[in-house]
Design a protein around this nucleic acid. Structure first.
Length: 229
DNA sequence: TAGGCCATCTGGTCCT
DNA sequence: AGGACCAGATGGCCTA
């Protein structure tokens, strides 16, 4: 188990949330611009040839059009280097190879755009994984996409609850009470354990953290949280 | 070997 | 018209 996990929630402050917001902003407004650095070709193994079973003529193919994207060439080149579907399609005469050169070029351009879009999406998911509390040790498998999204959602809800508690506490202290005063009954349901639910026990496992954070989530989604305490 | 997860291709739809 | 987005299909890899 990653020893730093216990304090991770403590360490994640509003600054981190601000950072997350900024990252999201960069991703939203710089979509594609940062792809060259983060999305270097070759990070994702290209699958071998697809079967191209569906040979229906696409509506977009009917419209034709010239290939103008030069990044398509880049992805196409990478794909060819790896012996991807495009190679097989050429060698074995797949449906795509039977289409007019113009339509084939357009289809490759569309494929490249879609591939890049999915890579950007995966980059964003990686960024999300990097800021949510779970064991980031090499021995623990990376969170799946769905698990990442659900964990992030619950983490946001937890942070919102903690923020609300802090506001209540500040409001209470501003009413002339000292910091040494016992927490009033009205605030009891929002005790410190609610703020940092995982900080009290050094024996808390990743699975325990996940199960706490994953309230209402099928247990099968955090089966990868298998690090040992 | 079955099931989960993933990358990719593909065709369709919507938006600018 | 071109690009973004989406969902379905398909096949590969990995694990229990």
């Amino acid at each position: 188990m990653n020893p730093g996990d216990e304090n991770l929630l403590k360490a994640i402050s509003n600054d981190t949330l601000l950072d997350l917001t900024q990252r999201y902003g960069q991703s939203a407004f710089g979509f594609g611009a940062g792809h060259g650095a983060a999305g270097s070709p070759g990070r994702y193994p290209l699958t071998p040839a697809a079967d191209f079973l569906s040979s229906q003529t696409a509506k977009s193919n009917e419209s034709g059009g010239e290939q103008t994207s030069d990044d398509d060439d880049g992805f196409d080149l990478e794909s060819r280097k790896r012996g991807s579907a495009f190679d097989d399609d050429d060698k074995h005469g797949g449906p795509l190879a039977k289409k007019p050169k113009e339509q084939r070029s357009l289809r490759l351009s569309i494929n490249a755009r879609e591939r890049r879009r999915m890579h950007d999406l995966n980059d964003a998911l990686d960024g999300l994984r990097s800021v949510i509390p779970y064991a980031h040790s090499p021995s623990v498998r990376k969170l799946s996409k769905i698990a990442t999204l659900l964990l992030a959602k619950n983490y946001i809800l937890m942070q919102a609850q903690a923020l609300e508690e802090m506001r209540r506490l500040v409001s209470y202290l501003n009413q002339g009470q000292t910091i040494n005063s016992p927490i009033p009954a009205a605030l009891a349901p929002f005790g410190q354990a609610a703020v940092y639910p995982f900080s009290g026990s050094t024996l808390a496992t990743c699975a325990e953290k996940c199960s706490t954070t994953y309230s209402g989530t099928p247990s099968s989604l955090f089966k990868h949280c298998n690090d040992k305490p």
